[in-house]
Design a binder for these strands. Structure first.
Lengths: 355, 355
DNA sequence: ATAGCATACTAAACCGATTTATTGGCTGTT
DNA sequence: AACAGCCAATAAATCGGTTTAGTATGCTAT
């Protein structure tokens, strides 16, 4: 790391612990704050200031290591270059991947962001967007969260699924996602399938299940009620899928394939199936959802419907910034649909003759 | 969600899109900003204001839905109630777990935080702390990042391992962690062990490897150079561990146990071993590190050295807030050590007779 | 009558920038 | 000489709060 060049007369005077303000910098230069500000921001008003003086100002700013106070600037400009991100939890998998996409785009564009996680508590889902707006965020991104009230700022929801005024929804093409998985399984000869639905609080749960039912109907597959389980509980551990699958097995109803709500629950399901003496994929084929990083490294590697989570994050960020730049009354997209992809790995195989 | 009670005369006047400022609220009440501010903040100076007036002020604030601008308040008070968190990447596993611990404590205490990820790029590691300080953070937490310059604000490093003035390090007891794993393996009869070291940029790499060597020496185990691999590459996918393990196998040197740098690489290693026809744990025992959520749901379930990552996050946050509250010249802890725990699962077993 | 004191507030400075309107000096033109 | 026009900057308002010092009023005690 380069240390500041010493030997200048300026350097000796710097009380290193002090922060230099515009005022002190201007005083040091014998100029007004206005002049210094104009030059440093390369504002149009700096046109009238001669090159020579500009250089002097910039040199001093560099040497005194002047850094404008962002709070003051934000207050005056009514521009904070900050956005708020609301997630259910900072977990492995889903939210982390979306966030990393969001971050990628935002920091590139000079924005910073606050993260808050509500852990599915309604009062927090209501309160955090308000707190964030108090902190002058210019926009909000809600991940897998059903936002309640309209915000004063642009809002982009990733997998929000609510038609709310002022909200842009970024959603997966769930019909296609369900079709991809179901066609894959039926082509392999599966007819008796079990399903794991998502938790009631997850905003994808309803639409995805609807899509699965539609796809099943289209393929002439009938869904048995006793082969439909639902994840329950706040945590995002495979444990939930494990428990649900045990009850599915306990129902006694035979099945040769299982379509889980997500990879995490699929991993738990495989564990349960294995404990019950079923081999994957010889006895039961398992399909996950999301394609989280460890899906590929399960044993057997998990066949799954890939959701482009990172891309959904960057898409959310870029859409939000575009909306922020646009005039408030401008039109904006209500929905942006992204496409899933079936990733065939080793957890699915041809259905065996019914035993 | 309760809508604001209508029917009040006030309500009708509210232009719902407008934000109410202290000024407009004061005008509305026919009082000075000072009075309103004092009452709303329950400041000591409000003592002289009669109860009756206080109620009036609070009522109006509620009805007009007044929310103080946090920027303005921060600027004046020189208190932002904001901290900055620097992580290598928002990945699954490590950083996400630490962050969730940090968030837990911070939000409870009324602090918000910015997250930035530097992806191991040196210029970003240098620049982000400065940018965060420009944004008036009151403190910094660096996760698995070797901070370069001292900051103007308190700084807590999780797994930082650098003695830097002004920095509190939160570190695992690596000596004990290594001993736990090595004793476990030697008790199972393993002598010929392979190792996967961390990437050069990870701040845990050096100390952990040193600890392993010390532990090995203490147990009379000799480490073969050709059985020591090192993760390479930025990504945090199991792929890295997979590649390293293939070269370890290719060396031809026999081994009955493998101690990986983390769970992610252990998962990749298992994949590689399996492809080479080695069964886990019959042929090779594998020990991971961290105990990420999916470790328990590997097949076989992964034996691993648990790092209390979430707790390290909350500990970092609480330590930081304590340092922020203390006078700047106060003493502060240089290092806080947390204890690992060996989680025995199914990926380790007794060593077979040497083939 | 008036000093002393509590009550109920308010005026104004302040935080650290940005930004608009203005100024004083100088040159060149009619 | 008067005026315009440019140059090189500056004064002052502003963002939206917090906070200190102060003031006007009424009441009590001497």
């Amino acid at each position: 790391m380069p240390r500041p060049k010493s030997g200048t007369t300026l350097h000796a005077r710097i009380p290193s612990g002090q922060t230099v303000s515009l005022k002190s910098l201007a005083e040091h230069l014998g100029l007004s704050q206005a002049a210094v500000s104009l030059v440093i921001n390369r504002a149009p008003g700096a046109k009238s200031i001669p090159h020579h003086t500009q250089e002097l100002i910039r040199k001093a700013a560099r040497e005194l290591n002047y850094r404008p106070n962002h709070l003051a600037r934000s207050l005056r400009q009514q521009r904070s270059y900050t956005i708020g991100v609301v997630v259910p939890e900072i977990s492995e998998g889903y939210a982390a991947l979306v966030m990393s996409g969001i971050e990628d785009h935002l920091l590139q564009e000079g924005y910073f962001y606050f993260v808050v996680s509500h852990r599915h508590r309604d009062e927090l889902i209501e309160e955090y967007p308000l707190l964030l707006q108090q902190r002058a965020v210019e926009g909000l991104i809600a991940v897998d969260t059903a936002v309640t009230g309209a915000a004063q700022v642009p809002l982009v929801a990733v997998s929000g699924h609510r038609e709310v005024a002022g909200v842009t929804n970024i959603v997966l093409d769930h019909a296609r996602a369900a079709a991809l998985a179901m066609e894959h399984l039926t082509k392999l000869g599966h007819r008796r399938m079990a399903f794991i639905k998502g938790q009631a609080f997850s905003s994808d749960t309803a639409i995805r299940w609807e899509s699965v039912r539609t796809a099943a109907q289209g393929l002439g597959v009938t869904i048995q009620d006793c082969l439909v389980g639902q994840l329950e509980g706040e945590s995002s551990s495979p444990e939930l899928g494990y428990q649900v699958t045990r009850t599915l097995i306990a129902s006694g109803e035979p099945f040769t394939a299982l379509f889980a709500f997500n990879d995490i629950s699929a991993i738990g399901a495989i564990q349960a199936l294995r404990e019950a003496g079923r081999q994957i994929p010889q006895d039961v084929s398992v399909v996950g959802f999301d394609d989280i990083q460890s899906a590929a490294f399960q044993n057997p590697a998990l066949t799954t419907v890939r959701q482009p989570l990172r891309e959904m994050g960057t898409l959310a960020a870029s859409t939000l910034l575009r909306r922020i730049a646009a005039p408030p009354e401008a039109d904006y997209p209500r929905e942006i649909v992204v496409q899933p992809e079936l990733i065939c790995r080793a957890s699915t195989g041809a259905a065996r003759d019914r035993s």
